[in-house]
Design a protein around this nucleic acid. Structure first.
Lengths: 248, 248
DNA sequence: ATCGTATGATAACTCAGACAAATTGTCATT
DNA sequence: AATGACAATTTGTCTGAGTTATCATACGAT
């Protein structure tokens, strides 16, 4: 049990200068403003363009390089990597990707992955969950019922439910992956709330998952979770039948 | 199609100073040498301990922070994050994790995730693959047959097969995730070759996957891929435990 | 007493400028 | 034409200084 205080979840880490610049450049890269193969300006030029020291700029580039977005080499410069080298599932990269315009095709791809992993995770959780897990999940469901998804407390309860489920898989990679993904999805779908103030009640879907896990029925848990996610996907604003993927 | 020349794939990036230090510290962290909550020495102390400038050390810390391993704050220091904040699927973190001792439980967790994602990916590929994908996969199978996994060419063909399959899913997240994971797995299981010079012929398993994808049979493709991965897992020398060896 | 507010110490943060190292392209030599 | 020396360019590394954020403590007000 990671005893996490329920409150104070956003300490507002107060991005430092290098973090701000990394974020700025990162968004410019993932949004296609810079294209793979492009060279960034030289350190001196870029840093004075941004009105920061070379030190701060370099640390920003280090961050981007650590996430696979760029590659810096002497005499050549700092080059945007092809998308295949990006750490697309890095939490920051995900956030930057869905920062501005939630690309429909990309969002669907993310839901697709989430469905794969999290439904399989539900299956694992059904066989591996402890009594404590079950208790925590029930508490979360109660919280979702009391407050709704319209309140921060309700959304927290929703998050707690999924987090506990993931912890029950006892697989750190699944936890790491899915927590980041669902964080990105939830932030991108925040505005869906103000666009569709009323969404279908998610409680029955969650309850089906919970029941299956309580019964240690892996197959049923997996199916229920898959349905839950598909419903969540259907609730995203623009995911209507515009399935036409633009392929270049 | 990304026309990639089959040869000259290792530009030998030659880690820089900050990269080597980040790697060194990263390994120390993921191996448990530093524990979550611990504080690194202050920049001045740590940098002179490592006999490098503060600049290089700071850039190394920046890399680690970008991967979620640490968190640096003024007045408090640089603290090791709890494992839940680590980007466990970051390629570097994966490499560092399995660098020294391939922890059995962790390796199994990774296989578990890989099985989830890649078998589902095979199902997607069955419905989305183009004729070009099919052709490339067949060529890769031919390569595996001609050379074996005992040769670099054969292993490259194996890798090509899986890469093409992933590309056929048309889901960049799946590609990003699985390519990193299988890279980590293949590097950790390199020594399995020298330990078990003869492993079972992987060609029939691959062929089953290929046939199902060619027939656009998603369910069968998924099942075949799952079996393939389980066989690969069984081939890892994981059944051995208590491999207490002195590091460094 | 409890809460909020100055104050000070400490760590990372930012800056400027210099030099070193690596890599590419050019040019002369063979 | 191929080879090797050389110069130019860019990132890499270093040093030393000053700045800012954050925590802990003490103090004052409620």
């Amino acid at each position: 049990m990671t005893g996490q205080p329920p409150s104070a979840q956003t300490p507002t880490r107060a991005l430092r200068l290098h973090g701000t610049i990394a974020r700025k450049l990162g968004i410019a890269i993932v949004s296609g403003q810079y294209k793979p193969g492009d060279l960034l300006n030289s350190e001196i030029a870029a840093s004075e363009q941004l009105a920061v020291s070379r030190t701060a700029y370099r640390e920003a580039v280090r961050i981007l390089a650590a996430k696979g977005l760029v590659d810096a080499r002497p005499k050549v410069g700092t080059r945007i990597n092809p998308q295949s080298k990006w750490n697309l599932l890095d939490p920051d990269v995900l956030e930057w990707t869905f920062e501005s315009e939630p690309d429909l095709a990309l969002l669907n791809s993310l839901f697709e992955l989430r469905n794969m992993v999290e439904s399989a995770a539900a299956g694992l959780a059904a066989t591996r969950r402890s009594a404590a897990h079950l208790k925590a999940m029930r508490a979360a469901l109660d919280g979702m019922a009391e407050y709704t998804l319209a309140t921060p407390e309700g959304r927290q309860a929703d998050l707690d439910f999924h987090t506990t489920l993931l912890e029950a898989t006892d697989n750190p990679f699944i936890i790491s992956l899915t927590s980041g993904v669902s964080a990105a999805i939830s932030t991108t779908t925040i505005f869906k709330q103000r666009k569709r103030p009323l969404r279908r009640d998610p409680l029955p879907d969650h309850l089906r998952v919970f029941t299956a896990i309580a019964a240690k029925d892996a197959a049923k848990a997996q199916k229920a979770m898959s349905e839950l996610i598909e419903l969540a996907r259907a609730d995203t604003p623009s995911s209507r039948r515009s399935d036409r993927r633009r392929v270049e």
